[in-house]
Design a protein around this nucleic acid. Sequence first.
DNA 1: GCCGGTCTATATCGCCGATATAGAACCTAT
DNA 2: ATAGGTTCTATATCGGCGATATAGACCGGC
Lengths: 219, 219
Amino acid sequence: MGAPSPTPGPRAAGSEATRRAILDAAEELLASRGEDGLSIREICVLAGVTPPTIYHHFGDKAALVDRVVDDCFAAFDRAFEGRTPPVDPVERLRFGFDRYVEYGATHAVHYRLMFQRPHGRPTPAGLASYDRLRRMVRAIDDAGRLLAPVEDATAAFWSSVHGVTSLLISGFWTREAPAIALARDAILSQLTRPSAKSKKVKQQKPMQRKTKGERHGGT
Amino acid sequence: MGAPSPTPGPRAAGSEATRRAILDAAEELLASRGEDGLSIREICVLAGVTPPTIYHHFGDKAALVDRVVDDCFAAFDRAFEGRTPPVDPVERLRFGFDRYVEYGATHAVHYRLMFQRPHGRPTPAGLASYDRLRRMVRAIDDAGRLLAPVEDATAAFWSSVHGVTSLLISGFWTREAPAIALARDAILSQLTRPSAKSKKVKQQKPMQRKTKGERHGGT
DNA sequence: GCCGGTCTATATCGCCGATATAGAACCTAT
DNA sequence: ATAGGTTCTATATCGGCGATATAGACCGGC
């Protein structure tokens, strides 16, 4: 496997197109029918291939899903780009929290596949994502504003944002639930100290009340 | 359906025994083979019945799993009893956090079934459990020590303990990871204010730094 | 002794993931 | 160009799954 032919040629190109068609069909089925609706046979119909083709290219269904998850992580990463994050490292982490939750809320099926796999072997793409989070936390540490070891703080932060996102996906919360900001600011104020410059606001009410109108949604 | 016979009689007793045998077999299979290993046919072999019997008693597999989940919630509740919780309402909540995480860590498969169901319709038993949590939070509010509305605080607290437990189950953490206490104390110190009596310790460093040498574990 | 309701078994359906087998398309070397 | 090896794809099938149609066994009440 993977013997790199000197020239891929039209044959390999067609093969790659088949591979792509299978992945696209899988992602479409995943979005439209959910995880349970993702069957090899339906993928075959949608992609215009037969089962052995899928097994030849991906090995088994789990490996195919792994590739789909890779694509999901690419889209996940994209949710953090294309917007200018705050410069302040703590605010950047808060920004990351919101982007993370936003992705989970708008891609529930994908999120479950990425972070709630029953046989939780972390994908390389997942580890890369976690590493990006660790770097954001380390930037806070570099600024002398982290109150816990980087590893512990990273893990605790992730557990917080994952907990929020999980409950959001389960339909227990709405996206504007005050508990979200509550949980987010709890972990942030526990892990970090305010910057020296922003002393003027000093110890503003520990909970973030700045946003204007998130006050109408009851339970 | 549901016409209550005047006297259940020995027949109904045998039926109830069959029902119990099916549930016991399902729980044993669940514990030994995991969620995926839980098949109607295997349950039949273990319980000594045939598939139509299961469908007669439970309707379909999802309903059977619902009954199993009910039993899990009973065991879950038991994890909070039999031990004398602290009297201080905040400390009682901290105690509940630890019991919750402990149950999740020692019953990973069951926890996933209870709280990570893909088709997340909350079981009545699950709602009852959440209500118990809400009462613990309300007790803090009654003591005048809650810093957020009861509903929001309850939800935020649950998201925190659920996030920790999920990551613990996924094998990402060990049970002694400092991040657990970090996340726990973060949400507690954000949601509550210290009691008037314990003023002597006042505003101890927001983060818990007491542990001595947790600085050797790099990446 | 028969009868209506409750409970269980036999046999089967359609779908699933996976694969053994074989053939088609392509590249390389002669 | 052509023979040989490699890569890719299709036909047909296996065993297992959830679910059910059908029918028989058991029991209480008339």
